[in-house]
Write a protein that binds this DNA or RNA. Structure first.
Length: 782
DNA sequence: TCTAGAGGAATTTTT
DNA sequence: TTCCTCTAGA
């Protein structure tokens, strides 16, 4: 198995090995905390390895320990290891944990990063071989679409009929599959714009080349091209990377797969860690097949299954496993835990989505009263549109929350604008950036001026900024436009000089001020202007961490995240996708309705594969929970502004009954019924669904409350519904328990006096917080 | 050139 | 319903 020198006392350690060990007194300890499977995954260093790591089974731990092991045993030095992740966050976390494991020795892992970051690094070295200069720019999505629009216009295609966005999506898809323009299957190339799809792709690539720019897909695709056309260079990298590790292998797309396969061909020391049951990015090119096919692609691979879950209680795990077992295309794992059965997963219905939000907020307040930290609670939704109602509710009752995900820092308009200024300053030939801020803030330079400028630039084959420099010496523009443009051109050359003499954050600050950009937002009266100014400040501040402007821009094109203000005790609200990799004590999963989840569109577009991906998403959601998972559905939901009736998700049906408790809340339905008279939505019919009937049966039936696998839970079946019972009773009370003038206590606002009663909403004069309208359920007799 | 209003679309998201 | 994009008119 292993010819390790320091495996055991029986094998006499070499002097070198002992010397190495002496450097690390804690050396053996990094392995001691691992269970046998984890240890196997760490120690199987040679040859292809597939680690199927279920949710909560210590995947990151295995990955980082494996790296530590390779280094500690002297099999590899940090720079011999290629270690790829998908997100910068994951890369950062990995670096951090390796550092904690082996100390400064792991600091310089130059080849630990995202596919794209590593691709960039390689391409910069060999740029000229793929027709680029080494200072090429990396385009973000919006630059890409801007460019695409130009390409479409050039080919005289009606952009309304064939939107740039759709073309960008199509081309991205091709790139994800590793296809260069000439490799696109003719049939597919035909499909866009009457057969012009292929031509547009070619034209788009040509435009990129002229601009010395690449998009994200190119970062991988051009590596493939580089290696295929230059076997000696490929050989060099194959040789250099003695060991390859891949995180989240189930998320790799075809291009990434090809990229890895080329690199791993020589040494075949490639370890992929992933979970086919957590593949939820098929829609953006991820190929579950990559992981399903691993043993076929790498014959003789060692496969290690990590099935011991250290996160969730028995019931939660049973629910998640039972659900995912319905998928056909999977390698098959059974998660198990030594933890207690814990609370069953709860399922509850609400009359509509507003009520669902109300129930969630109430349940959270109830948990909070029992000292449950808010930071250990998450609400996971299928689509971000669901967040609105939940947020509204949280705001109403004053529940602190934070939305995770959403628009990324570097995608915000103000950050892109600021970046564009810096890009043009650093590189006057960056036409896309120039176009972006050409008239931002407004300086009276519109389309007409831009067209003239374009014509000029094209005629002389020079960048826009240079063309502007010449244009202002002619009388082609109106005096007003000319003087504004002159101001801009002169500013840029002044700023470019400034870079030489001043620290870069200061220069950036100057640019933002002198260009009038900061002022633009200061004058803006809209609600988010203050936030944008704040972002700009943060942007300038973040530059300090980099040695110079060029270093900053390089970093920023690939990575840029808002520094999150951590620490506050808040509920987390996010989509299921954003939740992958996170865990919470209590997880709310609203919106389990057919059409929404599983999402109808996913099924329409990808059929059974789509449904299975939705099911995996449900599995991901459930496995985020450590102690409590609370599913819910609404019988009526507003979709695109129209109320429509829904039926509970088929996934609810698929949960193993013994792991689930159904929460009854009949009063909810009658309470709201009159509002929906016009709605044909028969809740009778929703209640007639198999899911609901089964749910009913489960409640009344006397299931044991134990898990199929070993019932160590002990005494769960007794009164599982107490907590929710309390909750339901409170929210449905029609007669207030309080009277005018009564003294009450509110968790957030403190003591107060009831000043008015309207159903379950009370007006309370709080001693400290003043008059507020609050729900009765948040009040306790004071 | 700018801005208000119409019209249309409306998952999931990283790099 | 709401958000975004494009167009028409000032």
């Amino acid at each position: 198995m292993m010819e390790d020198r320091d495996t055991g006392p029986s094998a006499p350690a070499s002097i070198a090995a002992r010397a190495m060990a002496a450097l690390r007194p804690e050396s053996a300890s990094y392995l001691s905390g691992l269970n046998p499977e984890q240890r196997r995954a760490v120690e199987a260093t040679e040859g292809p390895v597939l680690v199927l790591a279920g949710a909560g089974t210590g995947k990151t731990r295995v990955l980082t320990t494996r790296i530590a092991h390779l280094i500690a045993t002297g099999k590899a030095r940090p720079y011999d290891i290629l270690s790829v992740t998908f997100t910068n966050k994951a890369a950062r976390e990995m670096k951090h944990r390796i550092g904690a494991l082996i100390g400064p020795a792991g600091e310089g892992m130059p080849w630990l990063g995202t596919f794209h970051a590593i691709g960039t690094k390689i391409l910069r070295r060999h740029a000229e071989l793929v027709g680029l200069k080494s200072d090429f720019t990396i385009l973000g999505t919006d630059d890409q679409i801007r460019l695409m629009k130009q390409v479409i216009a050039d080919q005289n295609i009606d952009e309304k009929r064939w939107p740039a966005r759709a073309l960008a999506h199509t081309i991205d898809g091709w790139k994800n599959r590793g296809l260069s323009p000439e490799q696109v299957p003719p049939g597919e190339a035909q499909a866009f714009a009457f057969g012009k799809g292929g031509a547009l792709y070619t034209a788009y690539q040509a435009r990129l080349a002229t601009l010395n720019a690449v998009d994200f897909g190119d970062l991988l695709l051009l590596c493939l091209k580089l290696w295929r056309e230059n076997p000696d260079i490929l050989r060099n990298y194959q040789d250099r990377f003695k060991y390859i590790l891949v995180d989240e292998y189930q998320d790799t797309n075809v291009a990434q797969y090809l990229w890895l396969r080329l690199l791993a061909q020589l040494r075949k020391n490639v370890a992929c860690v992933g979970d086919d049951d957590q593949s939820i990015y098929g829609w953006r090119g991820a190929e579950v097949d990559n992981i399903l096919r691993f043993e076929h692609d790498f014959p003789g691979a060692t496969v290690v299954r990590l099935e011991r879950n250290y996160r969730s209680t028995g019931h939660i795990l049973a629910a998640a496993s039972g659900l995912i077992a319905k998928n056909e295309g999977r390698l098959g794992k059974t998660l198990r835990t030594e933890d207690e059965a814990g609370e069953p997963v709860t399922v509850s219905g609400a009359w509509d989505s507003e009520e669902e939000a109300r129930q969630i907020a109430e349940a959270i307040e109830s948990l909070q009263r029992r000292q449950h930290p808010l930071s250990e609670i998450a609400v996971l939704v299928r689509i971000s549109a669901q967040m609105r109602e939940i947020e509204d509710r949280f705001v109403q009752v004053g529940l602190p929350y934070r939305v995770i995900g959403g628009p990324r820092f570097y995608e915000r308009a103000e950050i892109r604008d600021a970046l564009a200024y810096l890009r043009v300053t650093m590189n006057g030939a960056d036409d896309l950036a120039f176009e972006r801020i050409f008239n931002t803030p407004k300086r009276g330079l519109g389309d007409a001026t831009l067209q003239t400028l374009h014509a000029f630039a094209r005629a002389d084959r020079i960048p826009l900024l240079a063309a502007a420099g010449r244009l202002i010496e002619t009388d082609e523009l109106k005096p007003r436009a000319r003087s504004m443009l002159r101001g801009l051109v002169e500013s840029f050359s002044r700023w470019a000089r400034l870079i030489e003499s001043k620290p870069h954050p200061e220069v950036a600050q100057t640019i933002l001020e002198e260009s009038g950009y900061t002022e633009m937002w200061q004058k803006d009266r809209s609600a988010d202007a203050a936030g944008r100014l704040e972002n700009l400040k943060e942007f300038v501040r973040s530059m300090e961490e980099f040695p110079d402007m060029a270093g900053f821009l390089e970093h920023v094109s690939l990575v840029m995240e808002a520094s999150e203000a951590e620490g506050a005790d808040r509920v987390s609200l996010m989509t299921l996708h954003a939740a992958k990799g996170l865990e919470f004590d209590t997880v709310f999963l609203p919106g389990w309705e057919d059409g929404l989840f599983p999402n109808q569109r996913a099924i329409d577009e990808s059929g059974r594969a789509g449904l299975e991906e939705e099911r995996r998403l449900a599995h991901v959601g459930l496995t985020r929970a450590r102690k409590r998972a609370k599913l819910s559905f609404a019988v009526n939901r507003r979709i695109h502004g129209l109320w429509s009736s829904t039926i509970p998700s088929r996934f609810i049906d698929e949960l193993p009954p013994q792991a689930v408790d159904v929460i009854e809340a009949p009063a909810h339905f009658s309470a709201g019924a009159s509002r929906f008279d016009r709605n044909p939505a028969p809740f009778g019919s929703s209640y007639a669904t198999p899911g609901w009937q089964r749910a009913q049966a489960n409640t009344s039936g006397n299931f044991s409350g134990n898990l199929g696998s070993g019932n160590r839970g002990g005494g769960r079946s007794g009164g599982p519904r107490q907590i929710e019972g309390e909750l339901v009773a409170k929210s449905t009370a029609t007669v207030s328990a309080f009277t005018n003038g009564a003294r009450v206590f509110h968790t957030k606002f403190g003591p107060g006096t009831v000043a008015g009663i309207d159903g379950n909403k009370l007006t309370v004069d709080f001693d400290k917080a003043g008059r507020k309208m609050v729900l009765e359920s948040f009040l306790q007799p004071g």
